[in-house]
Write a protein that binds this DNA or RNA. Structure first.
Lengths: 112, 112
DNA sequence: TGTAACTACTATCCTTTTTGTAATAAGTAA
DNA sequence: TTACTTATTACAAAAAGGATAGTAGTTACA
């Protein structure tokens, strides 16, 4: 395959990824859920996100199979959100961004 | 370190990363430049981005040391944009997203 | 001499998307 | 009644992105 085509495919793939997981919250929420399931309120508090946005983001993640939603038989009802087998595939992306962000922060600090 | 702290640090790092390379274009532009330098117009055409946005995105990338800008002594003058040593550190992120996007596209196609 | 063409932008205006705040619903129980 | 859960709605604000035209500098050509 020629280089130009490889570039086009890569560009497309990255756009696809951004379509699913781009924006301000989806990767942050995913990274939180990586360390275990959370209830709606716990997620909202931990991420610092308003319920409106959280609800919307979770729905979109669920639609793409990246988050599971489990209603628990408690009083009052609670709902647990968690990673899914498919969202395990996001780990590489999250790990790379986690690493890059930490390294970048160090770089910025050194400059001052 | 406790798990809760690890989670907080990861969340922060991912937010940092998104602050620098989030949005619709920065990672796409970076992935194009990965395969070699481009002029302003070439980038605009290849990415399908309007000059106004392209100019803004390139400035922001340059400010963060992720893109170099070289004025060439041609007639008429051309400007070459390219990766920098620092932007090499983005390769892991781009590679992970490239891989995920391709895999996700396959998954979607299978479902239909 | 004027005019067209080519580069890299910039200015203006506008639309769309995203995000936030606040209020509120439905269900249950102390 | 009050409190607690998970949401949802209405409204407003901000950010992001896009379309179009225009500027500046230079060359080429009639």
């Amino acid at each position: 395959m020629r280089k130009a085509e490889t570039c086009k495919i890569s560009k497309l793939a990255i756009r696809d990824t951004l379509d699913v997981v781009g924006g301000k919250w989806k990767l942050v929420l995913s990274s939180i859920l990586m360390s275990g399931p959370r209830t709606f309120n716990a997620l909202a508090k931990e991420a610092g996100i308003s319920p409106r946005i959280l609800s919307k983001e979770l729905q979109e993640l669920e639609m793409n199979g990246l988050v599971s939603r489990t209603v628990c038989d408690t009083k009052p009802v609670t709902v647990l959100y968690a990673m899914t087998p498919y969202s395990e595939t996001l780990k590489e992306v999250l790990e790379a961004m986690n690493k890059w962000g930490q390294n970048h922060r160090l770089k910025i600090l050194k400059q001052q």
